[in-house]
């Protein structure tokens, strides 16, 4: 039952990648910017959750919601301060700003609290369930459940609400949307808020699941989530989910086959192969629906 166990390991890891990848893909879909600071919003979310639990004694769900709200505000601030003034600048200028923003957040957090890691408190009960010989921790099921619930809520927002419609409109054609009376600036801010909120949730989930958080924890998951977004087709929401889960499973399989040291390399080999053979990702160009 080793393989079933490995698939379960991969899905747990992949659901965290997927949550981060959603934020990448939404922002890319709407303003064609790869927001490299996204992985660091994820880190900030983990720390907000940590301090909410240890400092204010909150439970898991209040901490999760608080972290999502603070990250959403944080995401909007980043967008308004760093990216909005560059909306009409070249894309490379915005990209470099995003990298600068990423470093600023990482080292800002180190400046404030130091670089030492922190151990997440145990806020979720953890028992192990035996399914066909595979050991599934109740925590990983719970986390998978939350990730899926958040993705369903996101689908609902994008497809059934007014702001979702505005987001889809702006991503199709910003100028036409403006002519139709859509407030483009607010719509872009809303996109950042939702994406960053999801990253904040991913941060808390990561902390509970993996225990260790530190100021540079966002770098590698951020890059992996970027690969996941490209794998699924950047700009396409279901693509980010599938890409994230797929990447998690691929990494588990690579480790399971005995190449654990190649695991990180595998993710980037996938990125290169996708960019060479299918630049628009799994979900391709024709069925493209951008947000």
């Amino acid at each position: 039952m080793e393989w079933l166990q490995q698939i379960i390991n991969g899905i747990s890891l992949g659901s965290i990648y997927a949550l981060i990848a959603l934020g990448y893909t939404m922002v890319y879909g709407i303003i064609k910017l790869i927001n490299f600071a996204h992985g660091d919003v994820f880190m900030v979310g983990a720390f907000v959750g940590f301090y909410a639990i240890t400092g204010f004694g909150l439970g898991f769900f209040p901490a999760l919601i608080l972290s999502m709200v603070i990250c959403a505000i944080f995401g909007v601030l980043i967008e308004r301060i760093a990216y909005k003034p560059l909306r009409n600048a070249t894309r490379i200028a915005a990209l470099i700003t995003a990298i600068g923003m990423s470093l600023l957040i990482e080292y800002g957090v180190i400046y404030v609290r130091g670089a030492q890691p922190e151990a997440y408190p145990n806020v979720l009960p953890n028992t192990t369930i035996n399914v066909f010989g595979a050991q599934i921790s109740s925590q990983s099921l719970f986390i998978l459940g939350i990730s899926v619930a958040l993705m369903i809520i996101l689908q609902f927002i994008v497809h059934k609400t007014k702001i979702g419609k505005a987001m889809r409109a702006v991503s199709h054609d910003m100028d036409a949307a403006r002519l139709m009376g859509i407030n483009v600036d607010n719509t872009i801010s809303a996109t950042f808020a939702i994406g960053s909120g999801l990253a904040g949730a991913a941060g808390v989930i990561f902390g509970v699941y993996y225990t260790k958080i530190e100021p540079l924890m966002g770098v590698i998951p951020g890059l992996k989530a970027f690969v996941a977004a490209v794998l699924g087709g950047i700009g396409i929401i279901p693509g980010a989910m599938v890409g994230g889960l797929l990447l998690g499973v691929i990494e588990s399989i690579v480790s399971a086959a005995g190449f654990s040291l190649w695991r990180d390399a595998a993710a980037f080999v996938i990125l290169i192969l996708i960019l060479i053979f299918r630049p628009s990702g799994i979900f391709g160009k024709n069925t493209r629906e951008k947000v």
């Binding site: 166990q5 490995q6 390991n9 990494e251 588990s252 399989i253 399971a256």
Partner: peptide, 12 residues
């Protein structure tokens, strides 16, 4: 941070 895949392999 994620060692589960390799640990599963060791366990087998």
């Amino acid at each position: 941070t994620d060692f589960r895949a390799t640990l599963t392999r060791i366990k087998s």
